[in-house]
């Protein structure tokens, strides 16, 4: 990351915030329709005693849900890769799981599991399990068969080939899935909280909306976005550290020459 990648988006954000502020002042809209950025920051600070614990709740649900999704996703992908029957049996169900009406199921989860973290964690899993599994399965099946032939010709066992070729080859795809999942996850947690009315930023947002405290709705939106971006950056950093070969300077230079960057 350098000035070339940071400055342009930062400039756009600053410009947008300034434009927002100017519009609010020039139009004279009442704060419950469109609060100014300054008003949003102020109400964030004023409600911090509620907001702080809400952030902790939402972040806990998000991280736990993600952890479960990653574990399950990798386990399912591995099973589907190793046993074709499992793949045939589970793949359609997986797609079906993604089409489940989460807005309908979230209140039911509250009925089944009570007003705790559990129903919201499940909502996060429902949102993120699918991209995690599909990306990992795709990664595992993307291995160039010529590598497998080469290793077999060296006398490598199946387990050895898995460890030496298939798993590393699947990692870029796994991380793509993780990046997708992470961006969904915070929103998923707040959706669960909103629908179930069970706490966290979702509940904060719901109450603020009902009280016409529009500035607080904006506070929650901004914080949700920041959390998502933060998590995304964490994954991005992990990926850079785990896959140095995937991001060699050379590759980047080639892309520059091609005008891709």
């Amino acid at each position: 990351m350098n000035a070339r990648t940071v400055v342009p988006p930062a400039a756009v954000i600053v410009g947008a915030v300034v434009a927002w502020h100017v519009v609010v002042i020039a139009s004279g809209l009442p704060p419950f329709i469109l609060p100014s950025p300054v008003g949003v920051v102020r109400s964030g600070v004023e409600t911090w005693n509620v907001l702080g614990p809400a952030i902790v709740t939402t972040l806990s649900e998000t991280l736990l849900g993600l952890a479960i999704s990653v574990t399950l996703g990798v386990a399912f992908a591995g099973a589907m890769d190793l046993v074709p029957l499992v793949r045939r049996a589970l793949y359609p169900l997986l797609v079906a799981s993604q089409t489940v009406q989460i807005l309908a199921i979230a209140p039911l989860l509250v009925i089944w599991f009570g007003f705790g973290l559990t129903p919201n964690i499940i909502v996060v899993v429902l949102f993120t399990f699918f991209p995690m599994t599909v990306a990992t399965v795709d990664g595992l099946t993307s291995t160039d068969p010529d590598y497998i032939r080469l290793l077999r010709s060296m006398g490598a066992s199946r387990a050895r080939i898995w460890r030496t070729v298939r798993l590393p080859a699947a990692l870029p795809s796994f991380f793509s899935g993780l990046r997708l999942s992470v961006t969904y996850s915070v929103v998923a947690a707040t959706v669960g909280e909103w629908v179930g009315g069970s706490g966290g930023l979702g509940l904060y947002m719901l109450r603020s909306k009902n009280a016409l405290e529009t500035d607080q709705v904006f506070v929650a939106m901004v914080i949700t976005t920041l959390l998502s971006i933060g998590l995304f950056l964490c994954v991005f950093l992990c990926e850079r550290l785990a896959l140095p070969w995937y991001y060699t300077a050379q590759r980047r230079e080639q892309w520059d020459e091609q005008g891709i960057y």
Binding site: D144, D146, Y147, R149, L150, L151, R152, S153, M154, G155, A156, R160, T164, V165, P168, L171, L243, W245, Y246
Partner: peptide
């Protein structure tokens, strides 16, 4: 398998291994 050494037309170097780690692969497997 493994009794003769086979070099395919494509180099098939593993992109996530350094050159050194690539060339010792047959011995690792043996």
């Amino acid at each position: 398998t493994g009794a003769v050494a086979y070099m395919p037309q494509r180099d098939l170097l593993l992109p996530w291994r350094t050159v050194l780690d690539n060339v010792v692969l047959p011995l690792e497997i043996q």
